[in-house]
Simulated assay, not measured.
Amino acid sequence: MLDSYARRIVQPAISGGAKLLKGAGLSANTVSWLAMLLGVGSSAVWMAGYPAAAVAVLWISGYLDAVDGTIARMTKPSKWGNILDITFDRVVEGTIMAAILIMYPEHILPLGLILAAILVNVTAFLVAGNVISNSGVKGFHYNPGILERTEAFVFFSLLMLLPSMVAVIAWIFLVLLLFTTIKHLRDVYVWLEENSPD
């Protein structure tokens, strides 16, 4: 939700970073790689016992993940860049959830269900992006949801920082993921109903 509706507020900071990194000679795809490596690295930092540092690294990764698209639009967006971006997002999310599962084995039920729900939710998101006509600046239709990347990072951060609250945070995260999946599927259904030939 925040990715879709608060982007205008943070875009100046994203554009500033994009200009800086582009000026340093970094391509959008290179920044995508950096974002992914930092995101994966954040789970290692957390498992090593530095939760605050891990969360900081995670959010730097998220910032670079936003910057790479802005660099692409400043230069020449590519389908390959879109593929890298989507794939690397899942690599980061999967790595973090795997680390959380390893560190909190006593909460395997809600955390395992979250991992499955992320998979289903991303599938519904990509289906919506493939079916609904694109009118935005991204490489495909970006269907807004209740949970988007920023909200996921908030939950990942809370799970890392608040071990005593893992069960409560996990169940809330799971419920919101399910509602987000339902929204994506409903949006596709409504679009098809409105745009199908009579």
Score class of each variant (00 low, 15 high):
1 M>A: 14
13 A>K: 09
16 G>A: 05
17 G>V: 00
17 G>I: 01
29 N>D: 15
30 T>V: 14
34 L>C: 13
43 S>Q: 09
44 A>D: 03
44 A>M: 04
49 G>C: 09
50 Y>Q: 06
50 Y>N: 14
54 A>L: 03
56 A>F: 15
58 L>E: 06
62 G>H: 05
66 A>I: 08
68 D>S: 05
71 I>C: 10
74 M>A: 13
74 M>K: 08
74 M>P: 08
77 P>V: 04
82 N>L: 03
83 I>C: 12
85 D>G: 04
87 T>R: 05
94 G>T: 12
100 I>D: 10
100 I>P: 13
103 M>Y: 12
109 L>G: 03
112 G>P: 13
114 I>A: 07
122 V>I: 11
126 L>K: 10
127 V>N: 09
130 N>P: 01
132 I>K: 01
134 N>H: 05
140 F>G: 06
145 G>D: 06
146 I>M: 10
148 E>K: 09
149 R>F: 09
149 R>G: 07
150 T>V: 09
156 F>K: 01
156 F>V: 03
158 L>H: 09
163 P>T: 02
168 V>L: 05
169 I>Y: 11
170 A>Y: 07
170 A>E: 11
171 W>M: 01
173 F>A: 08
174 L>A: 08
179 F>P: 00
186 R>F: 07
188 V>K: 01
190 V>C: 05
191 W>D: 08
191 W>K: 07
194 E>W: 00
196 S>I: 15
